[in-house]
Computed example of a mutant assay.
Amino acid sequence: MTPPDGSGAAFSPTPRSQVRRRPQRAAYDEATVFGILDAGIMAHVGYVIDGQPFVTPTAYWREGRKLYWHGAAASRMLNTVGDGAPVCVTVSFLDGFVVGRSGITHSLNYRSVMAFGRARLTNDLTVKRAAMDAFIDRLYAGRPVKLRPTTDEELTRIALVEMEIEEASAKVKDTGVTELAADDGWAAWFGVFPVETRIGAALPDPRAGCAPTADLSPYAEGRRLDEALAAAAYGLPVST
């Protein structure tokens, strides 16, 4: 996978994906949408079964304008949505606590994407094998060739879902405190507490018998998780 090329390609919003609240924070271009998606690994999939809404957290990956996720073949969610059901996939990051001098000026800094499409389930073992290798390779470049090959029987226990992104919108807030005239003169501290998730020290299995290899290099101790995931997706070096 390569980073979005900045060519200006964009999704065309309709009423279901148009950002109405604070539209100045919205973006529909591929570079912004894909940049947020590729910095994440956990998504929430929204769907409806027999009139009841559900939201399921799941690991995902992206190839072009397609999103993939997988789970157990017996999963009710995957088997229900996998026949072309409309779904909404959301990915979000908390980037900061914005602390004001009045309650109404407290807020959060964040990045988020909502992607809409129809999910499709595949039972083709060749497609499943290629997709699962792509998932591992997206996180750990070059690792699939080092692993024991997945058997056909193991693949039958996996349900794989593909969703073409029909529409998507990103929304980003990265601001300081919005001050109101009535706040002036109050002695309370105000500002921003940045929030990051970073990689911890590796915990090798006692049976490993070797050091981490190059395919695991994005996950060095102390690196930001979102930056590590983006670098893994694009095959780029990661700064600490």
Rank of each mutant, 00 (worst) to 15 (best):
H70G: 00
D205E: 12
F93A: 07
G6Q: 07
G235Q: 00
S112F: 01
P4S: 09
K66S: 12
Q24C: 07
V145Q: 14
Y60N: 09
E154Q: 13
L225S: 08
L147Y: 07
A85T: 14
Y219M: 07
M132F: 11
V195C: 04
V33M: 00
A231I: 01
G96N: 01
V172C: 10
A26F: 06
S169E: 03
A170I: 00
E196N: 10
A170D: 05
W189T: 06
L94S: 03
T58V: 06
T178S: 15
Y28S: 06
H44L: 02
S92E: 03
N109P: 01
L139P: 00
P206N: 03
V45Q: 06
I165S: 07
A119C: 02
A228E: 04
D184A: 15
M1V: 14
A233E: 03
Q18T: 15
S169G: 07
D152W: 03
P23C: 04
R22V: 05
A31Q: 04
T32E: 05
G8T: 11
L108E: 11
A27N: 02
T105P: 12
K66G: 02
D38V: 03
I158G: 05
L160Q: 03
L216F: 13
F54E: 09
M132A: 02
G176Y: 08
G6S: 08
A39Y: 08
V33A: 06
A73S: 15
D183M: 09
V145N: 13
A187Y: 03
S217W: 04
